[in-house]
Simulated scan of single mutants.
Amino acid sequence: MIGNTQNDGSLFAVGLTDLPAYLAATFDGVVTADQMRALYPSLSDTFIIPEIIKDFEFLCPAELWAGAAVGAGVSNIYRYTYGAVFADLQLFPNAGAWHSSELFEIFGTFNRSTATDPEAELSQTMQTLVGNFVKNPADAPAPNWPKFVPGNMTINVAELAYNGNVEASDVVQAVQSSSLDGPCDDFWNFFLDVRV
């Protein structure tokens, strides 16, 4: 089981608003603001930064690790992206499903005095999914969670709790990795994939 959260970069981008300065400090001039604006055309500079962090640090490595595991003969890889957003877990404006926010649900450590009923339900669901995988990693953690198969034209990733779907019967929305991995496949994997 390997994955990331929908807004993995938001926590690490707090206070970062100058895209050219961020790129210069992080990529030492190898990556330009124009390249990033073209890669994320619908976003302003301020919102590109957390997307870069999410993709470069979390999403693209998850895609590459999952593909490498399948390439090494592991047949039971289940890839996910977690998208639940709860008001009581928003540490700052636009935090979204920030890095590691799914752990509150998996371990049941959410604040029970401020949690909503859907938040408590999702915690039970996430614990069931992880428990299912631990008990039998050869079977899908949820009925409609597909095994990861490399290639962006297959339905191979589970979006977990993206649209308020918190029950075990509907928590997974299976999608093609191409709906998530575009920036990885178009740009970031050239830096990250040591197999190339």
Rank of each mutant, 00 (worst) to 15 (best):
Y82L: 08
L64H: 11
I106L: 08
G73F: 06
T109E: 07
A72E: 12
I77V: 12
A25T: 14
W188Y: 13
A66E: 02
I2A: 15
A168L: 15
L103P: 11
V194M: 10
E57Y: 14
P20G: 04
P20E: 12
T128E: 13
A84S: 07
L39T: 03
N4I: 08
K54E: 08
Y80H: 00
N152R: 11
L16F: 03
G9Y: 11
T154R: 13
Q90R: 06
G182W: 15
N152L: 05
Q35T: 06
Q176A: 14
E119C: 10
E159R: 10
P150N: 10
F148C: 01
G96F: 06
M1C: 13
A140V: 04
P137R: 02
A97I: 05
A24H: 13
N163S: 13
A33I: 02
Y80R: 01
S123C: 04
L91F: 11
V157H: 11
S42T: 09
W65K: 13
G15C: 05
A120C: 04
I53Q: 01
V85T: 14
I77G: 04
I77D: 05
D45N: 07
Y162V: 05
W188D: 05
L192Y: 10
N156M: 03
F190A: 10
L43H: 12
S123M: 03
T154G: 15
Q176P: 00
Y22A: 09
N76Y: 10
E102C: 04
S10G: 02
E51V: 00
N156Q: 02
A120Q: 13
V196H: 15
A72W: 03
V14L: 12
R37T: 13
F107I: 00
M36P: 10
L19P: 05
Q176L: 11
N163D: 14
G164T: 12
T17W: 01
